[in-house]
Structures are given as structure tokens and as C-alpha cells.
């Protein structure tokens, strides 16, 4: 018989191989942990440049009569609204001073909302007979065209292109586009913003207006101006551009923010949006706006909401002629 040692060595080797083989074969194949996901930044969406193919973008219909709530014409849009029991208005809930939810009361309030209350009072005799629908800037025209709301009072700039889609009241505020920067940042003029990051709500004309002024700035998009303020406070952007009314609301929420001095680089006349077919309602609202200009109601509202941030102002003159 051969030496046991001589035989055992290959058996041991074989045994070790088998142990390894079986342990490997029997051990379950376990899945790998997942790779961490990546966060993405929204792509900047620019609206088509509006062709001003008319000169009466701020002209509305001649004001009609302003009958008492119990004497509204039977077939009128106002009577239909009254029959429903509430005025439905599309508004913003996060544009401080214009239309924003008051966290203490849970209600939406501001300069724009005062016009909703005034129109409600004209139709119902009571200022609180309304339902607010919070909409985005991009929703303003579709909700009017689909008659989801009766009016839109949401920093809605009147222009010729929009007149082709909806109707507007007379101008109730003349805003202009400006820039908000960090106090002490050294940014003093628009030219200083070249190469800097500037935030604006996605899909708004604020982006194209600003790019015309400062082509070398880097635009960062957010869902709305409040989203821009979040990015601004986190240090992700150097500035925010938008209407001076909106920026005043943002500056009021952040003591370390200031609006650049100087004239606005665009004109943004705000009107109350109405469905294009409801001219009677437009004329009714224009009559109410005229009354507000004359009886000091407009001034009271402006002084309450916008005067502390934007200074003294008077009601814009109404233009009619449609």
C-alpha cells in the first residue's frame, strides 16, 4: 500500500476545493444596494416673445352701469354669478402684499384680493361672497377660457397678445419689472448682474425681459417667486427679477434683501382678467373700478398693502375705447 500521506494530500486539496465550491454554490447571490439618486434643476422655459401688434393693449370696454345687487340685469353674467351664490376668482396665495395666505388666520389677503372683495360687494352686497382658486401664472388664461373662474386677479399684465385670448378690465395698477439683490452685495446696477445667477418664475415674460437687459446673466428658474426667494435665501442665486409689486412682497419677508434703485425696465399694467365673451362683466367691473378710484377705496387699499414698500402712488388713469 502506498503511503497514506502521499494519498491524503490530493484528497485534502480536493476537499478544500470542494468546501470552497460548495460554500460558493450554496451561498445566495445577494443584490447590491441602490445607487443614490441625483437631484435635478428645472430647465428654464421661456415664453414666446409677445408681438405688440396693437397700440391699445391697456384699453378696455367703456364702463357700464353699476346697478344695485338686487337690480342686476336678468340675463347678465353678474346675475348668473349671483344665482350661483359666490364669485369665483383665480388668485395667487404666495405673492405677499398682492395675494398671500395669512398664516395666522389661514385666509388669503392682499391688494389683489381687495378687488375681489369689491366686486363681490358690487354683485352680492357683501364683500365676502367669493371663492378663491389658487392658480399659477401659467393657469391664468386657461382657467378663464374654460370658465373655471369668473375673474382672475393675479398680477395679470394686459397686452395685445392676451387680448386675443381673454378680456381685461381697465388698468388697476401700473407695475414695472425690477431686480431684488442681497443687501451689502455690492450689486448696484443691472450691469453688475452680468455673470451672476438671477432667478425668475419659469415660463414668465420676466425671463425674456431681463435677458434683453442683461444677456450675460445666468437665469435660474423656479416654480414661482416664493421658490426664487427660497433659493435666494439659501444662497443659490444672487438676485431675483420680477414686478416691483412682487419684489416688494419678497423684500418685506427678508430684511437682508433690497430692490435695486432706478426706473423699471418694463411696464406691467395689471387688469382684472375676464372670459373674452363676458363683456358685460368687464363693463360692470370697470364701473366698479371707476367708483373705487373716485371714492378713495383704491387709495385705501394701496396705502394699506403697497405704500410701505413702494411709496406714495395714485390710481392709474383708465383707458377705454374698445
Amino acid at each position: 500500500m502506498s503511503s497514506p500521506r502521499g494519498r491524503s494530500t490530493p484528497i485534502q486539496v480536493l476537499g478544500l476545493l470542494l468546501v470552497g465550491l460548495f460554500l460558493a454554490a450554496c451561498a445566495p447571490a445577494l443584490p447590491e444596494p441602490p445607487p443614490p439618486p441625483l437631484r435635478t434643476t428645472p430647465e428654464v422655459s421661456r415664453p414666446p416673445v409677445a408681438e405688440q401688434n396693437c397700440t391699445n393693449g391697456t384699453q378696455s370696454y367703456e364702463p357700464g352701469k353699476l346697478p344695485a345687487p338686487d337690480k342686476l340685469p336678468a340675463d347678465s353674467t353678474m346675475a348668473a354669478i349671483k344665482k350661483r351664490g359666490r364669485l369665483i376668482a383665480g388668485v395667487s396665495a404666495d405673492t405677499y402684499l398682492l395675494g398671500a395666505r395669512n398664516p395666522a388666520t389661514g385666509t388669503i389677503e392682499g391688494f389683489d384680493i381687495d378687488f375681489v372683495r369689491a366686486i363681490s360687494k358690487a354683485i352680492f352686497g357683501k364683500p365676502d361672497q367669493y371663492e378663491l382658486k389658487v392658480i399659477t401664472a401659467a393657469d391664468r388664461i386657461p382657467v378663464l377660457q374654460d370658465k373655471e373662474v369668473d375673474i382672475v386677479v393675479r398680477a395679470f399684465t394686459m397686452n395685445c397678445e392676451r387680448w386675443d385670448q381673454v378680456a381685461f378690465s381697465s388698468v388697476y395698477y401700473e407695475a414695472g419689472q425690477k431686480v431684488l439683490v442681497r443687501a451689502g452685495s455690492g450689486l448696484k446696477t443691472l450691469a453688475d448682474l452680468a455673470g451672476r445667477t438671477v432667478c425668475a418664475p419659469n415660463g414668465t415674460s420676466s425671463i425674456t425681459n431681463f435677458e434683453r437687459q442683461v444677456p450675460d446673466a445666468e437665469i435660474v428658474a423656479a416654480i414661482d417667486h416664493t421658490g426664487c426667494l427660497v433659493r435666494f435665501q439659501k444662497g443659490e442665486v444672487d438676485a431675483i427679477t420680477g414686478d416691483d409689486t412682487v419684489l416688494a412682497g419678497l423684500a418685506a419677508q427678508d430684511p437682508y434683501a433690497e430692490i435695486l434703485d432706478g426706473e423699471p425696465f418694463s411696464s406691467e399694467p395689471y387688469g382684472v382678467g375676464v372670459n373674452a365673451d363676458q363683456v358685460d362683466l368687464v363693463k360692470f367691473i370697470n364701473a366698479k373700478l371707476d367708483q373705487m378710484r373716485d371714492n378713495g377705496e383704491w387709495q385705501d387699499s394701496y396705502d394699506r398693502w403697497l405704500k410701505p414698500a413702494l411709496g406714495q402712488d395714485t390710481p392709474p388713469e383708465a383707458e377705454y375705447g374698445r
Binding site: 439618486p37 437631484r39 435635478t40 396665495a93 404666495d94 405673492t95 405677499y96 398671500a100 395666505r101 395669512n102 398664516p103 395666522a104 416654480i223 414661482d224 416664493t226 421658490g227 426667494l229 427660497v230 435665501q233 412682497g249 419678497l250 419677508q253 427678508d254
Partner: peptide, 22 residues
């Protein structure tokens, strides 16, 4: 929100997006 600033809702949206996206 406690100070009555609507930017609180902006941070709420940011937190919500952080939760759902990341």
C-alpha cells in the same frame, strides 16, 4: 409661517420636493 411670511409655504414645497425627489 410663525412670522406670517408666505415664503414659509415655499420652504414647505422645498422640503416636500426634497423628500419625494431625494
Amino acid at each position: 409661517n410663525r412670522q406670517g411670511y408666505p415664503v414659509g409655504a415655499g420652504y414647505l414645497s422645498e422640503a416636500s420636493a426634497e423628500l419625494r425627489d431625494a
